Simulated assay, not measured.
Amino acid sequence: MPTSHLDPLRKEIEQLPITPPPAPWQLKARFTVAGLLEVGFDRDSELLLIASSSGRSVIDCRSGERVARDRTDNLGSDRHLETRGIGPLQERIIRMAGINGGGLPVATADGWMIEDITLVWPAQHLLLVEPGSWLHGARYHRPAVFHKLAVELEVRAFGFSYSGLSLVIASGGEVVVFGRC
């Protein structure tokens, strides 16, 4: 197999241990969610809507608490990957990301970025890249600084809230939320 200039990066990602994100990030919530379908952030708050085969929930990502729950059969988004919220999001239309597609923001205004790297299918390495870094090469002659947050087989969504203050990893059966002030 021919060598590539990306081989050292692949090896570094593979050997890097899974760790929590660095300060100022903190674990806010970890929920087991059977039949997770999709998630979506409100554009104007840190509220996260979760849709699963058993209903929908709203999580306040600042506190990590569930603030609303329903068990209706209106589970997921429409063909535009949007759905009406519940509880404090009842009057809002939320863009969703998950099993049917869509996506969450992959960078923050102050330079944090995420990368979803598949080294050997189906394992997806979920990385948080620090401001001023770039995973695929040194920016401004600095080495890339990144953290492996997880290795998942069924990523539904991975990304930031619109403010960049929350970060979610939604896999086949779990939602993990990190936040910062």
Rank of each mutant, 00 (worst) to 15 (best):
K28Y: 08
R30A: 02
H80M: 15
L135M: 03
S52A: 14
G64T: 02
A109W: 04
L27G: 05
M113C: 09
L104Q: 11
L126W: 09
V151Q: 03
I94S: 04
S163N: 09
Y140L: 15
I99W: 01
P21T: 03
D7C: 05
I86F: 04
L127I: 03
Y162L: 08
I114K: 04
E130L: 15
I59S: 07
F158Q: 12
E152V: 10
P22F: 07
P105S: 00
T3F: 13
L153H: 09
I117T: 12
R56T: 11
G64S: 00
R180K: 06
L89P: 07
L49N: 05
G164D: 00
R84I: 15
R71G: 02
L126F: 13
F31T: 14
K148N: 07
P131W: 06
T108H: 04
L89V: 03
V151S: 10
N74A: 12
L104D: 00
S171Q: 02
A97I: 09
G98P: 08
Y140R: 15
I93W: 15
Y140K: 14
I59Y: 05
A157N: 04
V67K: 08
L89H: 08
G111A: 05
G103P: 10
S57I: 11
I93F: 11
A157E: 02
T32Y: 00
R95N: 03
S161F: 05
V155W: 12
S45C: 15
D60P: 10
I18Q: 06
P22G: 09
I94N: 15
A138F: 14
E65H: 13
G40S: 08
E91P: 13
S166M: 00
G103K: 13
R56W: 11
L6D: 15
Q124N: 13
Q26Y: 09
G164W: 01
R43Q: 03
S163L: 03
L153Q: 08
